[in-house]
């Protein structure tokens, strides 16, 4: 669906069911250069189980009006504008990669809005490799290749995927190519500049969950360990065989972890 936030059109999928703000909400946040399709399987799962689901495209990504936002803090405020605009209540945030930084910032700034946060494949900060930043600015196609190359584990590179007939790496490539003109580089710069993770994590009081990809090459183990260290009593699970694109590479295990955590901490009727 499309709706207005601050005079600009925002696109979000609702998981195949209408968004009903009388139900507890699950809001999914995608990573750099990607869009709503990243969370397809998971968003439909919660929508079909009595949650109000929202998977927005960040400004300047796929269907949402641009320009892309230039800082994680701005993304957190934008997210709050969405929550207010739709009057979403009892929000469970499910975030991947860059989305996790936004979730950290949002949950620390607007604790009253958030019931749970699930961090998937993320560190406390996301310093971006200079080679990648340069490529995103000057050679977007090479940047896409690097991100998907590092992002997907070997299963992704072999065009495997949980949906029969669908190649997850090729689908991701199509989405990222669409977002390369400005969104990707803006996203990466925002990630690189974000330094408030430690303070934000300490302020989060709601139940939190961290799902770690054992073969993550974009959020290395050290950064993830810092996130876990600074959060309050996180529920931690590791999916050993997965790469960074864990929700797509290991959707069944990821769904199962999200389900257990959200069903118990933010139950739908």
């Amino acid at each position: 669906m499309y709706f207005d936030v601050n005079g600009k059109q925002v696109f979000a999928t609702t998981g195949g069911k209408p968004f009903d703000n009388g139900k507890p909400a699950v809001i999914f946040l995608h990573g750099s250069g990607l869009d709503h399709t990243f969370w397809g399987l998971h968003s439909r799962f919660f929508a079909f189980r009595n949650y109000a689901v929202l998977v927005p495209d960040l400004p300047g990504h796929t269907h949402s009006d641009g320009p892309a936002l230039t800082s994680i803090e701005a993304m957190a405020d934008w997210l709050d504008d969405i929550v207010v605009a739709l009057d979403a209540r009892n929000v469970s945030l499910v975030a991947h990669s860059q989305g996790c930084l936004t979730a950290l910032e949002f949950a620390s700034r607007y604790p009253e809005r958030v019931r749970t946060v699930s961090f998937v494949a993320s560190g406390l900060a996301t310093p971006v490799n200079k080679v990648l930043l340069d490529a995103a600015e000057n050679d977007p196609e090479a940047a896409v290749a690097m991100m998907l190359g590092w992002g997907f584990g070997s299963a992704g590179q072999l065009h495997q995927g949980p949906i029969p007939g669908n190649s997850m790496v090729a689908g991701g490539r199509t989405v990222m190519r669409g977002n390369t003109p400005t969104a990707l580089v803006t996203d990466l710069k925002a990630c690189n500049a974000y330094g408030n993770g430690r303070q934000a994590a300490a302020k989060i009081t709601c139940p939190v969950q961290v799902i770690v990809a054992g073969k993550d090459r974009m959020a290395p183990a050290k950064a993830t360990a810092e996130l876990i260290e600074h959060l309050n009593n996180p529920v931690v699970a590791v999916i050993a065989q997965s790469g960074h694109m864990l929700p797509q590479e290991a959707p069944d295990q990821c769904r199962s972890l999200l389900k257990t955590f959200i069903f118990s901490n933010n139950p739908a009727t």
């Binding site: 065009h159 995927g161 029969p164 669908n166 190649s167 090729a170 689908g171």
Partner: peptide
């Protein structure tokens, strides 16, 4: 059949 589908998608650089 799914393996064949994903193999052809990969070779064509298509999404599915």
């Amino acid at each position: 059949v799914g393996v064949l589908e994903q193999r052809i998608a990969a070779l064509e650089d298509g999404s599915a």
